[in-house]
């Protein structure tokens, strides 16, 4: 648990950070809150020779209103996200999920961007980004590009970012009227990662669910949308039975792993139970 020696730079702008990364070559690595990277370094599971600390880049901080969406700076901490008035109003699912991450100390250091870039299958925020159809704004030597959440999470701990790219901000669409949401996290201890998590957003009109989005945490190498649940919910009655029937499909198309916290079989079971609960909670039934 002693990291190998590395060089450390702390640029003040995104462009400087990109140059620093390019200069470092293959063995350069971005560090933001360090809450995922430091453990990896200490266990010597990665050995970058240069760390580019993006923590003081002002243009990556803050949360602003972009009209039909919010712009969340990649450097916004979990603590800022969960307490931000705009997020609470327009993306309460994100505020709620950020509040379930780890413990207060980690939430004060860990960042939204770091969480997404890390692409941990057990991370809560990638799932929320997927459920809300967020768009990642990345900048690299070739300029800025936007990547949809569904294309961003590629594999275990692998995002669509190029090595020299930096995730600068995330555009989170505002949910309109009639939507309500819930994040249901299942973990073994209060501060542990999700064994399975379910992000649900439901649009209700009178007694009917008109549209639903359901995304799952830790049910495969990357967060996944439970599309057969979404299909079954569209137009379904907002009743416990109808929701339970739809949730029974939650494990369709998932590829959960077996680890110390749960077997794949148990995760599949949990996905169904938790989806039922998340959707019911969001739908207010």
């Amino acid at each position: 648990m002693i990291p190998i020696a590395f060089d450390y730079v702390r640029p003040g702008t995104v462009d400087e950070a990109i140059s620093a990364l390019a200069a470092a070559g293959e063995d350069g690595k971005v560090i933001s809150g360090g809450q995922s990277l430091m453990p990896v370094l200490r266990l010597r599971m990665a050995a970058p020779t240069t760390l580019v600390d993006i923590g003081s880049i002002a243009e990556m901080k803050g949360i602003t209103d972009g009209g039909d969406h919010l712009v969340v700076g990649a450097n916004a901490t979990h603590y800022e996200v969960m307490n931000d008035a705009l997020v609470k109003q327009h993306a309460p699912l994100l505020a709620q999920a950020a509040g379930t991450v780890a413990d207060p100390a980690i939430r004060h250091r860990g960042t939204f961007g770091g969480s997404l870039a890390h692409a941990d299958p057990a991370g809560d925020l990638p799932t929320v980004a997927l459920a809300l159809d967020a768009t990642m704004v990345a900048k690299g030597p070739n300029g800025t590009r936007e990547i949809a959440a569904k294309d961003f999470f590629v594999d275990y701990f692998t995002s669509a970012l190029e090595p020299e790219e930096i995730l600068v901000a995330v555009k989170v669409p505002k949910l309109g009227d009639g939507w309500s949401t819930h994040y249901e996290k299942f973990n073994r201890t209060a501060q542990a990662w999700a064994t399975v998590g379910v992000a649900a957003a439901v649009k209700r009109q009178n007694g009917t669910i008109t549209e639903a989005r359901v995304a799952l945490t830790n049910m495969g190498p990357s967060p996944v949308r439970a599309s057969s649940v979404e299909a079954a919910l569209a137009g379904a009655a907002a009743t416990t039975d109808a929701i339970a029937a739809a949730a029974a499909n939650a494990a369709d198309g998932t590829r959960p792993t077996s680890d110390l916290h749960a077997s794949a079989e148990f995760r599949e079971h949990l996905a169904k139970v938790l989806t039922k609960r998340a959707v019911a909670q969001a739908a207010g039934v």
Binding site: L43, R188, T189, Q191, A192
Partner: peptide, 13 residues
């Protein structure tokens, strides 16, 4: 082999 896998309860649990 680490406290991420060997779970010890905290006050919150």
């Amino acid at each position: 082999a680490s406290f991420a896998d060997y779970l010890i309860p905290s006050a919150a649990d």
